[in-house]
């Protein structure tokens, strides 16, 4: 009987269906995709990592001229989004753009531009495997609450909340795809559907479109608040960026 119960528990773990607990996104990937995500030689996202590392060193006022070797970025992306001294909620993209305009005297790259994606991927990759550890208290608390409201709100013509899929039905199949817990840990990610690397906000726009809800702009306050909530849900889970997704 004990053996049968243990067998059942194993089975329940293996199928993941209706799991109340949050599981790493990699657990929801097919074994093939998971292996490919782990292998830089078979992962197209590494092209952006390499380009980002070159950008890190480029120019007189390069990122490296202040920050030193990019290896020093270890652990940084695991703490984003975070609230800046002026009270703004910044994700990693926002932080890079601020460095560009405030410290490097350059024009912002623009959301979803190749250089911004590359730098984001290169910096995030330095936190690969480290646990997400975003602050949720202090000045972050109000943003987190807004993110929680958006996550739980039924939206769009299809009247679905984020949680109805990513909490209540994680592990079940939506057509050929297994629904994950919707963690942001793999972003920026190379998505096969896009055939390129893209940001978390681009992915969120696809979710909005899927439920026929209004799509917010990349970098919008709505998606930033949602990103913080998603990161808070991922606290303790390993960074997977650059991820590989279907």
């Amino acid at each position: 009987m004990i053996r049968a119960a243990a067998g059942f528990a194993l089975l329940a773990c293996a199928t993941l269906a209706g799991a109340a607990e949050i599981r790493p996104s990699r657990d929801y990937l097919s074994p093939e995709l998971r292996a490919q995500q782990d292998d830089p030689s078979r992962h197209p996202g590494w092209l952006w990592v390499e380009e980002g590392e070159a950008l890190w060193r480029r120019g007189a006022r390069s990122c490296a001229s202040c920050h030193g070797d990019i290896a020093g970025m270890r652990g940084v992306s695991a703490r984003y989004p975070t609230v800046a001294a002026d009270g703004a909620l910044l994700n990693l993209e926002g932080r890079i753009e601020r460095c560009r305009t405030e410290h490097q005297g350059e024009a912002a790259f623009g959301y979803e531009s190749e250089p911004l994606l590359s730098l984001t991927a290169a910096i995030a990759q330095r936190s690969r495997g480290l646990p997400v550890s975003v602050a949720t208290d202090g000045p972050a608390a109000a943003f987190l609450e807004e993110g929680r409201r958006l996550f739980g709100m039924r939206q769009g013509q299809l009247n679905l909340s984020c949680g109805q899929c990513h909490d209540d039905n994680a592990g079940r199949r939506l057509r050929g795809d297994v629904i994950s817990n919707g963690l942001p840990t793999g972003y920026p990610a190379y998505r096969l559907e896009w055939n390129t690397l893209g940001s978390l906000h681009r992915r969120l726009r696809a979710c909005s479109l899927g439920v026929r809800a209004e799509q917010f702009p990349l970098g919008s306050p709505e998606y930033l608040a949602l990103e913080l909530l998603l990161a808070a849900r991922a606290n303790g889970q390993p960074v997977e960026a650059p991820g590989l997704r279907r």
Partner: peptide, 18 residues
């Protein structure tokens, strides 16, 4: 969780096209 297939009222943040 199933969407309402013949309803327009009481829905939030619907894509302007729909």
């Amino acid at each position: 969780a199933m969407p309402a297939y013949h309803r327009v009222d009481g829905l939030a943040n619907v894509d302007p096209r729909w």
